[in-house]
Amino acid sequence: MKIAGISGSLRAHSMHRGILRTVAGHLTKLDIEFVEVDISEFPLYDQDLNAKGIPRAVQKAHDQLQSADAIVLASPEYNYSISGVLKNAIDWFSRVEDQAFNGKAVSIMGASPGMGTARSQYHLRQILVFMNAFVVNKPEVMIAQAADKFDKEGNLTDQRTIDFLERALSSLISLSKQLKS
């Protein structure tokens, strides 16, 4: 099995990149391959640019998603919604032929100093309906009061949260297997 992850934050020490590092560490213990998909070099979506062909960075990231069995999206909440870089990436992915989210299990995860990204996750679920993705319903990973659960480098350090995240990954793996059978 192979799982791909995307961070909706581009900062090197973001909590969302830290979530993906925790995901990678857990999946390695399960002999599941993990790849973090880089969306940092995507141009802003533009129909005129799209008409010239899918940009190389978008195609490379799409191919990584396409080869994965499931996807983890770890994203902050910006202005009560998802981050612009993640929305831009999804807009590009939706334009690629045989788009990679179609029919795949997706787990949404997020962390914030406050409520834990509930509003952005709701918007992301709406977007993923269009992408024909199957979102893990429970458990929902909304890490509240995140400043107390991550170190300065963005690494998740709270063991209860790590255990919860591992349960969410078990649900993602299970849903992915169900979709393939």
Rank of each mutant, 00 (worst) to 15 (best):
V72K: 01
D91Q: 07
I19F: 05
S107P: 02
R160L: 12
I82G: 00
A4P: 01
S120I: 03
I3W: 00
P76K: 02
Y45K: 05
F134Y: 01
K104T: 13
E166N: 09
M1S: 08
S120A: 14
A61E: 08
R167M: 10
L175N: 06
L30R: 15
N50G: 03
P43V: 08
D63R: 13
N79I: 01
R56T: 12
L86Q: 00
Q59F: 04
L73K: 02
L27I: 04
R11D: 07
F134D: 02
A133S: 05
M109P: 12
I90W: 03
T157W: 09
Y45Q: 02
M142P: 12
N137F: 03
V35G: 06
S75D: 04
V135Q: 00
H13W: 13
D98V: 11
A168Q: 04
P139M: 05
L172M: 03
S83C: 03
K87F: 03
S40W: 07
P139N: 06
F101R: 10
L44N: 06
N132E: 10
K29C: 10
L179F: 04
M142W: 12
D69C: 01
D98E: 14
H16K: 14
L49H: 10
D63I: 09
L169P: 00
L65A: 06
A147G: 11
H16N: 15
L65M: 09
A4R: 00
L128S: 06
D48N: 09
I71L: 10
Q99C: 11
D46Y: 13
Y80M: 06
D31N: 15
K52H: 07
L44H: 13
V58G: 01
I39C: 12
K149R: 14
S83T: 11
S83M: 03
K29W: 11
G8T: 07
Y122T: 13
E41F: 08
D148I: 04
T22H: 10
H123V: 11
G114Q: 14
G154I: 09
R56Q: 06
E140F: 10
G154Q: 02
G103M: 07
I162T: 11
I143L: 11
I127L: 15
Q145Y: 10
H26I: 14
F93E: 04
N132D: 11
V106M: 04
R119I: 15
M109E: 11
T117P: 08
F93W: 13
K2V: 00
H26S: 11
T22C: 15
P55G: 00
N137C: 05
S174H: 12
Q145H: 12
